[in-house]
Write a protein that binds this DNA or RNA. Structure first.
Length: 226
DNA sequence: TAGGCCATCTGGTCCT
DNA sequence: AGGACCAGATGGCCTA
């Protein structure tokens, strides 16, 4: 996780994230301390969540499209240096393609366009992933990097699986207690008392928070690497 | 200025 | 043969 994403965590939510960063720190992303070193900022502009979400609006599925030429992609901007591509496909720059036959050049441009669309589809899928995992989507928060998105999603899935498992155990425990104490009503011990409640302390102490879907609950678990 | 992140091009490989 | 997928190379942008 870079410093930009560290800042992201700090700006997710004034209340929950303060607690989050203090308790779980950077390991919430699943990175080890050694992987945090360097920590120069990310390149992301202060992109609102709606910014990359709006990139999906009105977007057709280009993978199944019939467009084949190099300039058919509406997201491809020849005037934008970051979207224009390298000088290799520019005759005026005398790139390798300029020495190839026109047919080969045309084929290469077609392949390039296809690859570009494929990568755009991949990025759209990543945007979709960002939109469903709980992290701040406010304009003041940087967009998650690709690697951070994947790691955060992985932790989120693992946390949800654990939450589900503990919920099952909770239901089983309640059902069991009901059958045993049906004749003699006994007060049930409060959550968190491990002596009478066979669940992990973390599961009990933050039961409500755990299932509320807050970022804190997301970052809390599964910091270890497989 | 270094390093992180990204988009794009490119050639290779595999699959249909 | 054509398309999908992949990884390496390259260069631009941004931030500390």
């Amino acid at each position: 996780m870079n410093a930009g994403e560290e800042n992201l965590l700090k700006s997710i939510s004034n209340d929950t994230l303060l607690d989050l960063t203090q308790r779980y720190g950077q390991s919430a992303f699943g990175f080890g301390p050694g992987q945090i070193t360097g920590s120069p900022g990310g390149r992301y502009p202060l992109t609102p969540a709606a910014d990359f979400l709006s990139g999906q609006t009105g977007k057709s599925n280009e993978s199944g499209g019939e467009q084949t030429s190099d300039d058919d992609d509406d997201r491809f901007d020849p005037l934008d240096p970051r979207k224009r591509g390298s000088a290799f496909d520019d005759d005026k720059h005398g790139g390798p393609l300029s020495k190839k036959p026109k047919e080969q050049r045309s084929l290469r441009l077609s392949i390039n366009a296809r690859e570009r669309r494929r990568m755009h589809d991949l990025n759209d899928a990543l945007d979709g992933l960002r939109s469903v995992i709980p992290y701040a989507h406010s304009p003041s928060v940087r967009k998650l990097s690709k690697i951070a998105t994947l790691l955060l999603a992985k932790n989120y899935i693992l946390m949800q699986a654990q939450a589900l498992e503990e919920m099952r155990r909770l239901v089983a425990y309640l059902n069991q207690g009901q059958s045993i104490t049906s004749s003699i009503p006994t007060p049930i011990a409060p959550f968190g008392q491990a002596a009478v409640y066979p669940f992990t302390g973390s599961a009990l102490a933050t039961c409500a928070e755990k299932y509320s879907g807050t970022p804190a609950s997301l970052f809390k678990h599964h910091n270890d690497k497989p």
